[in-house]
Amino acid sequence: MESINVANATKAFHWPGRTYDATSLEGQALLGTPNESGVAFMLYQHKHDLEHKAIKKVTAFERDCELMLLFYIVDVDPHARAEISRDAANFILAGI
């Protein structure tokens, strides 16, 4: 979060903080952190129980000098599912 703030010349904010779309670079950088990746793991490893869901956006805010992260989770649109499958297929083919 500190890196993102330095890169974007922003500061940590109290609630309502700053919201990043999961498709943005900042959102994906947050998604790759140890704290946030656990949420992604839960969603993609438990599709049978939770149905197909994904993180839509992340709100980062500060409280008592501690970073808080709020994740918004939504149902995955079937069209988006097909789209990502094509992308993943490209990746698999190119990886052979």
Partner: peptide, 29 residues
């Protein structure tokens, strides 16, 4: 920290794809 940020970006992009892929496709990835 720059390296950590780069690693987080790489990992975040992969996790983002895994969330949207169906189980079969994610397993292949």
């Amino acid at each position: 920290k720059v390296k950590e940020l780069e690693k987080a970006l790489i990992r975040g992009q992969k996790l983002h794809q895994l969330m949207f892929a169906n189980d079969q496709m994610a397993a292949q990835m």
